[in-house]
Design a protein around this nucleic acid. Structure first.
Lengths: 110, 110
DNA sequence: GCGACCGCCTACCGGTTGGTAGGAATCGCG
DNA sequence: CGCGATTCCTACCAACCGGTAGGCGGTCGC
């Protein structure tokens, strides 16, 4: 479904691949929140405001599947999530650039 | 819905604002396709493979509302869509960076 | 052991997105 | 005028995303 569409123009293929990383609306927010450092799940719920319990789990599952986030067990039946090297590369690179652009052009966006 | 969530950490607010620009899966593809130059609607349908007529219209409406894309009437009942200055800034900036990152890390992404 | 907390899972519901099909309005050409 | 091309709109449908509620099993402190 992605390959045959790449016939049209190649760069588009990479745009679609990248879009799938942030296409779920909460994923970029979770990645951005994890830039502040490793954090336990419940603290992540607080750090990100307004996300529901289930959605955070789903988002973390997706990000784990793409090896952007890793999970470690901690004491007290707790869990710590942190960015992987790939995740840091994405969060500090394209995602940070995206946020910076949005900040600069904030006034121009309705 | 966005403001009160910005209490948590400020950069996150901009991430969410930027995410709304590419939240709809076809929008980045349309913007990327328009980077190749102004184009009529039907040609855009061909240039982008696999998009449906209705979805392209909806995507263009959203992008027009955000002043990323402008529409001009052309002869023969035709219409020409092109990127605005803001749209070019976004497509050549964050979007291009995103695609470049995806191309570089293509192998690491499942 | 018991209660509290934590992570996670399972329904269910509502809204949105994407796809298909059909048709209306407009313009230019033969 | 008849016709095709183009743009756009309206249903209708399937699939998905996000939210709510409730429950299950694990670990820790008491």
């Amino acid at each position: 479904m992605l390959d045959e569409n790449c016939q049209t123009f190649v760069s588009d293929c990479h745009v679609r691949a990248a879009a799938e990383l942030i296409n779920h609306s909460w994923d970029p927010v979770v990645l951005s929140a994890l830039r502040l450092g490793p954090v336990r799940r419940n603290d992540l719920l607080v750090r990100i405001g307004g996300i529901s319990d289930k959605v955070l789990t789903q988002s973390l599952r997706r990000l784990q599947a793409r090896t952007l986030v890793s999970k470690e067990t901690a004491g007290h039946g707790g869990v710590v999530y942190r960015l992987t090297t790939l995740g840091e590369s994405f969060a500090n690179g394209p995602l940070a650039y995206l946020a910076q652009w949005a900040a600069e052009h904030q006034a121009e966006l309705a």
